[in-house]
Design a binder for these strands. Structure first.
Lengths: 203, 203
DNA sequence: CCTTTTTCATAACGGGCATTACTAAACCAC
DNA sequence: GTGGTTTAGTAATGCCCGTTATGAAAAAGG
């Protein structure tokens, strides 16, 4: 008995998930959550518990609603296909929704409140300058015949930056150094070579 | 004339830099900053301006004090060496100081206050399960002869996760989809092959 | 020594946060 | 229809945040 709930719990959870995706855990306030869900604060508390519990529910829902490509990838016959499907699925998901780019999990603590937007922009620019330096250096390498004519310097620079960011996230997660070193070595396995550079390697 | 400053500005900046490195921009409170620097709030304000200005000063100092390996890398003769030095330098820096692992820039908005520690741990575990699934899948691939006997499945899994995290960070930074797709393709360039898998490729 | 100037530390300020009393309304059982 | 029970929405609570007013302490000039 008693009064009926006037909102759909799953719908509200989906809306909350989008807010967390965009703003991260700490960046999402209850003001944001009530606005997005159309549900007042006390109702959110009674339906989900506190903010942390709500975020965990959102994480679980993210997994079941957006990460279907992951089991898909794991079912493929070859490891290369698995990795390819995994990476392509991540790219697709990270860019599909313009209002919530990136990965829910990474953003979860990478994103922050709106007040931190200038700082976020400063860091983006900072990383962009580093990437630009890398790209210019690679272009010089191509001119010098150190990279093949077919090499895409911008992509190589972005790739190196991506691996670096991935390493940073993993280091933050407590990965042991040897693991990270192995990852870095693996990242170099596909480095483009031409006849000349293939002749004499470092290390 | 007037009273002398009783603390060293650069020393205080170094201490503040460590706090930001560990806790990120929003996660670092003035309570943390005063404790780490030994300088009271108003003195920090008079010396550096507000929190945002202090963070920018810390970022600049991070660049000059910790990123020396970057110009080092750029000076090397081959692109492969540049990338190798870059990645190895990042690994070294990301793991050198146990009290502030990871990258200042990435942590800057990835890290958060201490209250968010359970959430951070939950996300770490979540990513770890995904990585474990990937590793098991690769081990199966090795048993099936799809990966060479020499393949290190744990490293391959960590590598794929790292690239995925890097892609997420870049997507968050507003990278265009084509760029990310090129990065993902590049990440597959060094995928280990054996005679059998080299024979018949997908895509 | 006294005035002026700068820095110091305590303590306050307004604002936003997560969380929760509290009251009115809606519903079911009887 | 009435009583018991659950939800809705307003508004309050306490806390911590970044920032700053306030007045004492210290240094230099005359």
């Amino acid at each position: 008995m008693g009064r009926h709930r006037e909102f759909c719990v799953e719908t509200a959870l989906d809306a909350a998930l989008c807010v967390f995706w965009r703003k991260g855990y700490e960046g999402a306030s209850y003001a944001d959550l009530t606005e997005a869900t159309g549900v007042e604060r006390p109702a959110l508390y009674s339906a989900f518990g506190n903010k942390e519990a709500l975020f965990r529910r959102a994480l679980a829902r993210y997994h079941e609603r957006y990460l279907g490509y992951l089991p898909e990838a794991l079912r493929l016959p070859t490891a290369r296909q698995v990795a390819a499907h995994f990476l392509r699925g991540a790219v697709e998901l990270n860019t599909r929704y313009p209002d919530r780019t990136g990965c829910f999990g990474v953003n979860g603590v990478l994103a922050g409140s709106d007040d931190a937007e200038p700082i976020r922009q400063a860091l983006i620019e900072y990383r962009a300058t580093g990437e630009a330096m890398l790209r210019e250096r690679f272009e010089r390498a191509k001119a010098e015949g150190d990279l093949p004519e077919t090499a895409d310097c911008a992509t190589l620079a972005a790739y190196v930056m991506a691996v670096t960011h991935g390493l940073a996230v993993q280091a933050k997660a407590g990965f042991r150094r040897e693991v990270l070193q192995a990852v870095a070595e693996q990242a170099l396995a596909g480095w483009p070579e031409n006849a000349r550079s293939a002749a004499a390697h470092d290390s």
